[in-house]
């Protein structure tokens, strides 16, 4: 390969915490951004060799191919339980789950709530794109009222299918949760804030301060049927009003962290 950029001029490259494998994600999807933020964080904290990831069922089912860390692949929704099993026997390792909204907020509701309730010392990266991606765009518990999906073809009817679930707000109410925040990946400024939150979440775990979760509002241009640029705008216009960004739980000890 011809090197076009001299090493001294290189300002951006693939993080070493990634493998060489190209991702399978659709163009414009924010999974790649979220992956990169995690990889950078693990490198900055120098914990790549101590990290064990737990992949979900959903679009990010193959996340284990992209991170250069040990990885396991959980059953649908069970990642927090699997992470619990790992963390309890290897308490000095960094154990994180990476889950979508179908995985975490629907089929995995019991596992995530109880992991948080126990104050399980793990980190959860929760991607909320308000739809089931891998199976082709069905309604999720997080789907917005009126949002069209293949299983709510006339738009989510709250009389019929109920209301969106706000996971960060619910989990923040629990004594076991130490750090619960919602960020978004729809523009550079918010991506920078998301990165800082991910760092805080992993620091929370590595200092033994308890359960941490970062919810990341994400795009799904393919299943939303909106182009990537407009998808980012759609997050701002439609998702953020339903899922306000912010810090929902910062325990006293996490609040004292100076990063």
């Amino acid at each position: 390969m011809v090197t076009l950029v001299k090493p001294e001029n290189m300002v951006f490259s693939r993080p070493q915490a990634f493998t060489e494998t190209s991702t399978h994600y659709c163009p414009g999807c924010t999974h790649g951004t979220a992956h990169r933020l995690i990889a950078e964080t693990l490198m900055e904290m120098n914990i790549v060799d101590r990290t064990i990831g737990v992949a979900p069922v959903g679009c990010s089912v193959f996340a284990y191919n992209y991170f250069d860390t040990d990885f396991v692949e959980a059953a649908h929704g069970r990642a927090p339980a699997m992470a619990t099993g790992i963390k309890r026997v290897l308490p000095d390792r960094c154990v994180f789950t990476y889950q979508g909204d179908g995985d975490l907020a629907s089929i995995g509701m019991a596992e995530i709530m109880h992991a948080a309730g126990r104050g399980e010392n793990i980190t959860v990266i929760f991607l909320n794109n308000a739809i089931y991606g891998m199976t082709g765009g069905q309604m999720a518990p997080t789907t917005l009222p009126g949002q069209r999906t293949t299983s709510s073809p006339n738009g989510r009817d709250v009389e019929l299918s109920g209301f969106p679930l706000r996971m960060s707000e619910m989990i923040a109410k629990m004594d076991g949760a130490s750090y619960v925040v919602r960020r978004s990946l729809h523009d550079p400024a918010n991506i920078r804030k998301a990165k800082k939150a991910i760092r805080t979440a992993f620091e929370t775990q590595m200092r033994g301060l308890g359960f941490s979760m970062v919810e990341l509002l994400s795009t799904c241009p393919t299943n939303w049927g909106i182009n990537p640029v407009d998808s980012c705008q759609w997050v701002e216009d439609h998702m953020i009003p339903v899922y306000p960004l912010g810090d929902y739980k910062i325990s006293l000890s996490v609040g004292d962290l100076r990063l």
Binding site: A75, A81, M82, G85, R88, V89, A110, E111, H114
Partner: peptide
């Protein structure tokens, strides 16, 4: 390690996680 899980579903998936680390579970 001992955890009383929230369900048998969770319990066996905790077993799954620990089993992946190669300890007796």
């Amino acid at each position: 390690a001992f955890v009383q899980a929230e369900s048998e579903v969770a319990a066996i998936n905790m077993v799954y996680g620990a089993a992946c680390t190669g300890v007796r579970v």
